[in-house]
Amino acid sequence: MKNNSMTNLLSSDFFKLRKLKSVWIGLVIMVVLTFLVYAIFWIGLNVAEHIEVTEGVSTQAPSGEAIVDAPNVGEVSEQTPSEEEGISQADKDGIILSMRMLGNQLLTGFTGICGSELLIAIICCIFIGGEFANGSFRILISRGMNRVQLYFSKWITMATLVLAYSVFSLIVSGIFAAVKGYYPSFGGHEFGILMRAFGLQFLCNLATMTIVMMLCFLCRSSGSSLGATIGVYILFPIIFGSIETVMGVMMGKNVDWISFLPMQQSSIAQLATPLSTTEICAVVIMPIVYIALSMFVGLYTFIKRDVK
């Protein structure tokens, strides 16, 4: 075996990753979370299917337009028809249809429902931060290992984990989705949408992982990088949500650009509907930009700073 080759580093990293309990615990958590989400969905669907229909009441079309069927129109004007007189068959069909569409969305949003993005971020902190903390980097560098190779070895290892987790969550979600079936039916078009969702979610998770990896290389310990990552996960939605509320809702400005900010693309990637041009740009270009940027910052600091 040749000394200091990338293959050696990758073999060692995969060996260590395979032995990391968090990786396997993460898989279990993903199955449990997916099951819980689907269980809630099944219960909801079951409840919707067993709603008692009241004959001769006003109904609401699935499209949302009120269809007034009451003998006296004037009496219905103050309250919604269903609240007053029960649920019609059309209402029930509408609810079931909405639930079915939600079921389809659960399948395409497979990484979101099992929290794989956060799990990968946590494992990344434990794995890379741990390498700094336990002195593995020290030992490898002192043996003349190239720092660039070391960095890319970690990135490829973690990228493989992202891929493995994405595939696993897709399989788990697919199995649970099959219980009630895809609505109306699962054909080639639906498979295409699912594959698009898979590709985009993989790309988004890869970008998130690279950002977290950069944080690990900046913090250089599992504890502080974990803290920083959780901080980012809490702060980003608060900051971006506030901006959206203030500018979008209160000031009435266009806030589509928020989807271009870091770690904001996953929700678009999970959609089962056709995407707009802006959404495609946000979900395809921005993750690549963030991967390149965070990789550069992480690598630069790793090369320039002394290793303790």
Binding site: N3, N4, S5, S12, S136, R143
Partner: peptide, 9 residues
Amino acid sequence: AAALAFGHY
């Protein structure tokens, strides 16, 4: 793990 990285497994 170390031997794999060093190429002396």
